[in-house]
Write a protein that binds this DNA or RNA. Structure first.
Length: 401
RNA sequence: GCGGCUAUAGUUCAGGGGUUAGAACGCCAGAUUGUGGUUCUGGAUGUCGUGGGUUCGAUUCCCACUAGCCGCC
């Protein structure tokens, strides 16, 4: 392995491709869905389940949240996020750019960075490309994201252009700081015993990958421009940001169809924060390799279950005496054991087991779907697979199941 | 057995002689896309305990009955 990550495509079917990303900690088969572990935990699901049954090879962690709490001093002291959390497979850390815009109250945007108030205690905080890189280095993730600005999905052309240019400047600074950190860490360690101890705590440091982010909202010309400027800087992978942030669905699909095939073929392509099972299949058909989304775990917490025949809401009264599993076609341990009626009861009674069971199933559904996708691409039958999968999803869209 | 209080939505309770009787919680149903177990948005629900009386009009005032709660014997 020469670089921090090693991406190989093993089969291609139309624009869709399947392959693997080797990081220092795990081999990730693509297309991959990455469960979101914002604060160093997948909400409601223990790592044991993710490792053993679900076999997740990579999860997300979040710079914004972990920076605010517990803070990087704690995480650095405890040997990085992997050691701290006990998750020893790969982690991708988001840069915090998105959260500053979606969560923080007041924010003051300057070229230098973003000043904002913590959503936890209202404290005045500051994030910049440099700080984000510092934090992500301390978290010691395998894949680091550049610090970007995420404009609303329906942003006007002119506003989007300005935002995109800021993101491009920030991308350059992210890369520069990232490179400094990595060379500094490899040369400075021997200089003091203190640093040596730190080095031993993070022996894998210096092997992080950095991904750039393409913005441009719904404007295809700006997407092109953003892609060019990001590729020019040079990253280990490229992400599509700024989708599913309020724009219409056909806008998102239009951007995907337009931009994904133009992204460098030899690097992983990552669609950030998306989406529904349909969204994933659509994006994969345009050549996207990586996804993350809060839907399986967030909806799981509020009674929403994804099934092979569409979404269901376990709260619905029609499940009150339904002794079948969440999804009759699902092989997960939740569907093997628990009935809809029981899980609905748990939900109505406010038992947290309802949230954990549905979240578990939802992740199983997402990860198993990705497994089937990879097989279909490898077998050259992706289009047929996608069509029949979508047809089944819509089969009982309005209830039934 | 006697006296007092009460009876209005699934529950706890407001209300008031005059169109369509309210709240909270619960219930029913939506939303949620680089995560706030949060939140938000809709919706349904009533023989106003039963019977009689007064009145143009009673769920509201009066009487009886029934039920519940409290106290006394």
């Amino acid at each position: 392995m020469h670089g921090p990550i090693d991406f190989k495509i093993t089969a291609q079917d139309g624009e869709a491709r399947t392959g693997s990303i080797r990081t220092r900690r795990s081999i990730i088969e693509t297309p991959v869905f990455m469960p979101v572990g914002t604060q160093g935990a997948i909400k409601g699901v223990r790592f044991e389940w993710l490792e053993n049954e679900l076999d997740a090879r990579i999860i997300l962690g979040n710079t914004y949240h972990l920076y605010l709490r517990p803070g990087i001093d704690v995480i650095r002291k405890l040997g990085g996020l992997h050691k701290f959390s006990s998750w020893s497979r790969s982690i991708l850390t988001d840069s915090g750019g998105y959260q500053v815009f979606s969560l923080a109250k007041m924010r003051k945007l300057t070229d230098e960075g973003v000043e904002f108030r913590s959503h936890i205690d209202g404290a005045r905080c500051f994030l910049s490309p440099e700080i984000s890189m510092n934090v992500q280095a301390a978290l010691d993730s395998e894949i680091v994201m550049a610090f970007d600005e995420c404009p609303p999905g329906d942003a006007e052309h002119e506003a989007t252009r300005k935002s995109l240019e800021l993101t491009a400047r920030w991308a350059r600074r992210s890369k520069q700081r990232f490179d400094e950190l990595h060379t500094a860490q490899s040369t400075n360690f021997s200089s003091s015993s203190e640093k040596k101890r730190q080095a031993e705590a993070c022996t894998l440091n210096g092997m992080q990958a950095l991904f750039g982010i393409i913005q441009g909202a719904g404007h295809l010309d700006l997407r092109n421009e953003s892609l060019e400027r990001t590729v020019e800087i040079g990253f280990d992978g490229y992400a599509i940001g700024g989708l599913s942030v309020g724009e219409e669905k056909d806008v998102m699909y239009g951007v995907l169809e337009h931009i994904a095939p133009k992204m460098p073929k030899v690097h992983p392509r990552y669609l950030m924060g998306v989406g529904t099972p349909e969204d994933l299949l659509e994006a994969i058909s345009h050549g996207v390799d990586m996804f993350d989304c809060v839907l399986p775990t967030r909806n799981g917490r509020t009674g929403g279950a994804f099934t092979s025949r569409g979404k269901i809401n376990i709260r619905n009264a029609r499940f009150v005496d339904d002794d079948g599993p969440i999804d009759p076609d699902c092989l997960c341990s939740v569907c093997a054991r628990y009935s809809r009626a029981y899980i609905r009861h748990l939900y109505q009674a406010g038992e947290m087991a309802a949230a954990t069971l549905i979240s578990h199933h939802n992740l199983a559904f997402y990860l198993n779907t990705m497994r089937s996708v990879r097989e279909a691409i490898a077998g050259g039958t992706y289009l047929a697979f996608k069509n029949s999968f979508l047809e089944k999803l819509r089969e009982n869209q309005d209830g039934g199941v």
